[in-house]
């Protein structure tokens, strides 16, 4: 599904990514772990097409297409979704309206009819239940005045409604208490299916107790220094990132 080859990124003369190689097949969950500043978020941002990231070289192939040549909205259109680490607030746009616009844009481009308000409402209600979001929440402006936990859950709700093919979750667990963490995990697991893949970026092994990955990669100073199965997280938890440096 996704093939990253020799990906480099230099920001302000500093090399943030130093040759990433990664293959993601359909139906798998890959966790990417690493200390602050190791390049995790930069990798996520490059994949979704954020501008002004600096100099990028290497190739990324997604569903057989050259991902790096596409506009952000074209990538989204092909089922690429980023759950942001810090979702932005947009005053004046109602959460429900925003989601409906995004959803129907997808439908249009897939040649499907737009869902009307009632059908869409039913869909959103069903998905809201999974992440325990109530209706009042949908009427508020996008992320506006939301708590940290509400923002994270809203990202997961959007993910479930838009039903993407490849999801990148950038620290979906940061700042969450254990209850909220479990809700977010439930949402992520609800998306799992044989034709979808997930890239899960996190610092901690905590989330991985609830969302069990197929693979774990450790990113350190812009490189994947170790890859392995889910047991790698436990080892990392015990030994700390110092273990990598050593």
């Amino acid at each position: 599904m996704l093939k990253i080859r020799n990906l480099h990124a230099t920001i302000d003369k500093k090399e943030i990514l130093r040759g990433i190689n990664l293959d993601i097949n359909a139906g798998s969950i890959h966790a990417i772990m690493g200390p602050n500043g190791s390049g995790k978020s930069t990798l996520a941002n490059i994949l979704v097409g954020k501008e002004n990231i600096g100099n990028i070289s290497g190739t990324v192939e997604y569903l057989g297409k050259d991902l790096l040549k596409m506009l952000p909205e074209e990538r989204a259109n092909l089922g690429l979704f980023l759950a942001f680490q810090y979702p932005t607030e947009i005053a004046g746009i109602n959460n429900m309206f925003f989601l409906k616009t995004a959803f129907n844009n997808l439908r249009k481009q897939q040649g499907l009819n737009e869902l009307d308000a009632l059908d869409f409402m039913a869909l959103v209600k069903a998905k809201s239940k999974i992440v325990e979001i109530d209706e009042e929440f949908l009427k508020r402006p996008v992320n506006f005045g939301f708590s940290g936990g509400e923002k994270k859950r809203n990202e997961i709700l959007q993910m479930l409604v838009l039903d993407p093919t490849l999801v990148i979750l950038d620290e979906p667990d940061s700042g969450l208490d254990i209850d909220a963490l479990q809700i977010v995990a439930k949402g992520i697991n609800a998306l799992r299916s044989p034709n979808k893949s997930i890239i899960l970026i996190t610092h901690y092994q905590r989330l991985l107790d609830y969302v069990v990955p197929d693979y774990i990669h450790i990113l350190y100073e812009g490189k994947i220094v170790k890859s392995g199965g889910k047991e790698l997280a436990l080892e990392l938890e015990q030994k700390g990132y110092g273990w990598i440096e050593g």
Binding site: V48, G49, K50, E51, L71, P72, E73, R75, A76, N77, F81, L82, F84, P87, T88, I90, G92, I93, F97, F98, T101, A102, N105, L106, Q109, Q158, L162
Partner: peptide, 18 residues
């Protein structure tokens, strides 16, 4: 960018916000 990542074009996003 948030809007574009959600498949909403830039012009449409500005218009929606305004």
């Amino acid at each position: 960018f948030y809007c574009r990542q959600r498949n909403i074009k830039k012009d449409d996003a500005v218009t929606m916000i305004v």
